[in-house]
Design a protein around this nucleic acid. Structure first.
Lengths: 380, 380
DNA sequence: TGAAATAATGACAGCGTTGTCAATTTTAGG
DNA sequence: CCTAAAATTGACAACGCTGTCATTATTTCA
């Protein structure tokens, strides 16, 4: 099931654009690779390539770095030699000599629920491999009073060219200004802000929340409980807005008491649910802003002997592993995190290479995954 | 609750032993770090330190690398200069010049349940940071026909000094022989094999399984179902052995039909449970070899209207996030994964530095975490 | 066709370390 | 106090690449 996306442009693909040919090439295995001990078998250097191609090392360098002003015929000669010798530029030498480090940092929150980070990691890793960059990790425990210090140390000691900031790290303006001050490009998984040249990717959280709310309304639910997430995540506000918009679109009155605060944790989902179910007229459906809280909702409802979905429909967000491992399996909203992270990291690499980066808004579509935790309203 | 550990030596601590002072130092922030744009503010080099200390650069290099044959007074002078200038050796130059890369690879299975990898990652990252190494990641999807090729490419293209192999990757002998051929040191989370100088750390899986089985027996259970895990994991066999030993120790007859195969997945836990509950005399307690399967067990039991733990006690292994997010919360076995990974990576770094490595068996203790999914036997 | 402008290529000096090997200082032993 | 051995220190050449700037083709335009 794939509910309608928003009317804004949906941007996809992890294409990285033209550039360094070498880094792209997935070289075949060679005898040299196979030789026991890379410490003995010497890898070919730029000199070997230059000699074989009959040009200077500088020209080889130009070809490798996709610089302009190389005759097409020359480029082909060099490329052939590179292929012949299975040449790969030595990163240490490049770094030592040039101004770039070929390293991208990924700063993430180190939470209990790791599936989001896992997906981001997979996407970023893929883009880095494709682009010839190395990915370095900085796990952060929040809240962290030394946040800025830690980030600063990471950036300066690890010699980073750029940084990827997934949610919620990408929402910290303090980190953004630090990186701006340090003149380090960064890319965020977050709704874009003012800057025209900023790098960011996000998904239509608000729309997804609207969709899932509408889905419940279509099943006959009118009393809709909503459990907010940790306000530190920008998504928390967007999801709430989507809920509100759906209410309005269906002329359902907004009741303040149907909305509870949570912190994205299992426990907070439970206590919010307790408050909701204690109402004189409790909701027949509860929208939790993530799956952990939805699991808490199910837990709490079960404690009270409520049947799901007969007595209470429950939906979550994020389609984390737990969503399909609890009973009943959760109806939830899935984001294409891996693709988003890959695309985002690709954008950052483009920028680091000085390639032009499309400045239009980059928006991915979420969609509702329907499972057994939701059903038509049966109670009064 | 902490059930008895085995009688073998329990090894702990992430201590790394004497060595490179520089990499250890967590340098304070300096004006230089703070200066906007590390591209402009030049970092001090070995020459600056040498001049300030009044020695040659080679002597500085010796101090930094903790080489022998440096007079104590000289070492102190150099150290003082290093501190003064906030000097840190340039990795690119070190790599280019020397024979080491200061990079450790982590090869892991990229599963749905990521919490194990997350913990390993955290531990390895910590040790790498302390030791001045960079951690590079290779996620692998299993089964993978190109396994060896992928690993080979990773090792040779990423210029690794050593590799960390968590479970189940550490159980692949093909990878071990490849790395041995390539002359790349590696360290495994796995029971040790024959080699005396191998690097490995593991926990007492067999004992933990014995303990949890004994725990159930103590609660009055006699008909104990057991769901095996994926045979690719060495832990699968050990956990089964612990179960068998506990049966024997309590003079409970072993029934083949009480043991079902699983693959560590939620689904396989469900179908194994179906088979167990279909028996004429179904078990009153089920031991699943991991939490996902235990969740499947709970799911299936619920489908049949069984109450947990009144009608059926359930235990899992690993204390993954799901264990505390389902109803009822799972009694399970927790391993100190983060500590194990940190210690293991520390050992690898020691070896890479040529320091002596303690060759005794390194064993960590697991323990049973008691939650609501288990209780005394009530049914006949 | 010739001169100026432009495109293409190359020579060479770093980049900041470590390895090698020689030089110097200190220690030990008579 | 002298000598050999051992400990300590230093000079300098790599390491493999990129940046700078000079040089050499090629094209353009009058």
């Amino acid at each position: 099931m794939r509910l309608g996306a928003s009317n804004r442009q949906i941007w996809r693909s992890g294409a990285i654009g033209p550039s360094q040919l070498i880094n792209r090439m997935k070289l075949p295995m060679t005898d040299q690779d196979q030789a026991p001990g890379r410490r003995t078998a010497k890898a070919p250097t730029i000199f070997d390539v230059a000699k074989q191609a009959g040009v200077s090392i500088k020209t080889v360098s130009r070809v490798v770095n996709a610089e302009i002003n190389v005759r097409e015929s020359t480029r082909e000669k060099v490329l052939a030699a590179i292929n012949d010798l299975h040449y790969r530029p030595n990163t240490a030498a490049r770094v030592l000599s040039g101004k770039r480090f070929y390293v991208i940092g990924l700063i993430y929150e180190n939470p209990n629920e790791f599936s989001y980070v896992q997906k981001v990691l997979n996407g970023a890793l893929k883009a880095c491999e494709a682009g010839g960059y190395t990915l370095l990790l900085l796990p952060l425990t929040l809240p962290n009073p030394d946040l800025i210090q830690d980030v600063r140390r990471f950036v300066s000691q690890s010699r980073l060219d750029g940084v990827v900031l997934p949610a919620p790290i990408g929402d910290f303006t303090s980190i953004q200004s630090l990186l701006t001050d340090l003149d380090i490009p960064f890319a965020r998984i977050a709704p874009r802000m003012s800057l025209a040249d900023e790098l960011s990717i996000h998904c239509n959280d608000e729309q997804a929340s609207f969709d899932v709310t509408q889905f419940l309304i279509d099943q006959g639910h009118q009393r809709l409980g909503f459990i907010k997430g940790d306000p530190i995540h920008a998504a928390t506000a967007h999801r709430f807005e989507g809920y509100l918009r759906a209410l309005k679109a269906n002329a359902i009155e907004y009741h303040r008491e149907y909305v509870q605060d949570g912190q994205f944790s299992f426990e907070s989902g439970g206590s919010a649910t307790r408050a909701l179910l204690d109402l004189r007229s409790p909701p027949s459906a509860i929208i939790a802003s993530n799956d952990d809280m939805a699991a808490g909702t199910i837990f709490e409802a079960r404690e009270r002997g409520l049947r799901i979905p007969e007595d209470l429909s429950v939906v979550g967000f994020d389609d984390t592993p737990i969503a399909s491992r609890i009973w009943p399996p959760l109806t939830t909203v899935r984001q294409p995190i891996v693709e988003m992270a890959e695309a985002l990291t690709g954008l950052l690499i483009q920028k680091l290479r000085g390639e032009p980066v499309d400045s239009s808004e980059r928006l991915f579509a979420c969609h509702v995954v329907t499972r057994a935790s939701t059903g038509p309203r049966l109670v009064n």
